[in-house]
Design a protein around this nucleic acid. Structure first.
Lengths: 123, 123, 123, 123
DNA sequence: GTGGTCTAGACCACA
DNA sequence: GTGGTCTAGACCACA
């Protein structure tokens, strides 16, 4: 399901990371599933292999995926959520930013909550 | 109230933009209020005037502030929210990303809604 | 009829020049009519006298108005149009720019001609 | 075809913007065409890269060109004209100004329409 | 190699 | 004094 928009201002490697995480949450990718290799994925979505590699490395660092030597890359089986204070602060910061942006678009709390319900509905 | 963290990975000009928008929403800055001049603010927070200028220009483009020739820069009086489809899509994208991030931190919908309540409570 | 918008990005002194020229074309100001003094006008529209003065000086240079020592400033009686090649080039450049701008707004030649008719209709 | 006159009072970045827009309308630049990179153009016309960058950024904001990460800058393929009331007012204001200027040069409506025909003839 | 951000500093138009 | 434009040059993220 991996889709990447090279026009977007969002870095491609981040798009890949988010896309894979989303697929895992939606159950499209399940723990233990094999991911395409860097070269395969690079060919599939015609993106520079370095970019794919960067995304995979970051996902590995987050313990979302793991590389098994000679076998390939897999979705981790035993992911345990980790909250650090820093991540929490970050999340709040980002949420605040969105709320402010919404306010400037004339979107109040109720409307924003609707949007959130919508998104959860799709998972 | 303007604080800037030069070690943050977030561009300084964006920090300034967000900080000013937040101050407006919180009522710390009111419509018609004068902002410090580029040079003043530059001296206050020891950031290069060009960087301040960049932030002000972008805020002007968003119609959040306005420049009155030779008099200075002011918070706009008659801000009208504008929603374009593009902005809406963007907002949803960003919200989805946060929700995914939250999920990976073990924060479920209820906890996230609490966080949102908290943020609104501060405005 | 002189109106000035200090919010506009157009320099105030230019707004004054254009406004006076427009009034002359419309017949609101007639050849020989007395203009308010710099100080009077400055008080009337609460604009810095230096700015008024700059506008008057430029209008004088263009032979649109003339200063009669001790009596005041008047609309010239015997204005003769002067076309220099430079001015002509300038006019064409500006017109071209407008036409390009119109094009990018989806305004074609016919619609632009309508706009022009409209403007002439008001003179 | 990009030419820039550094002696002109018109800011260089605006000259670049207008020149590119003109080239697009004339068909010299077509949708999807690659523009020279900031550095290339900078070298070609010996203008500081920052100035080129400023022009490109503004053209991007207007959706005339788009940046594709790491690949370069391209003429947008799917430009849709947008008229806002503000832009329309602006256009009329500028046209009025030209008409007044023309009048003071002894150019009447018919002559002005000829000039306009001329310009459209070149596109 | 591509553009994005930032600094330091100069000069100018405008009010 | 106010912001606008431009240069020169550094460092960085991304592909």
């Amino acid at each position: 399901m991996l889709k990447v928009d090279s026009r977007s201002s969002k870095p491609i490697y981040k798009q890949i990371i988010e896309s894979i995480k989303e697929d895992i949450i939606k159950g499209i990718l399940k723990p233990g599933d094999k991911l395409p290799s860097v070269r395969e994925l690079s060919a599939m979505i015609t993106i520079n292999p370095n970019t794919i590699s960067k995304a995979y490395k970051e996902l590995e660092r987050m313990k979302t995926i793991e590389v098994i030597r000679g076998k390939g890359t897999f979705v981790c089986k035993d992911y345990k959520p980790v909250i650090t204070e820093e991540k929490m602060e970050n999340l709040k910061e980002n949420m605040k930013k969105i709320i402010i942006e919404a306010h400037y678009m004339g979107i109040n709390k109720d409307k924003l909550l609707n949007i959130i319900e919508d998104i959860y509905g799709k998972f």
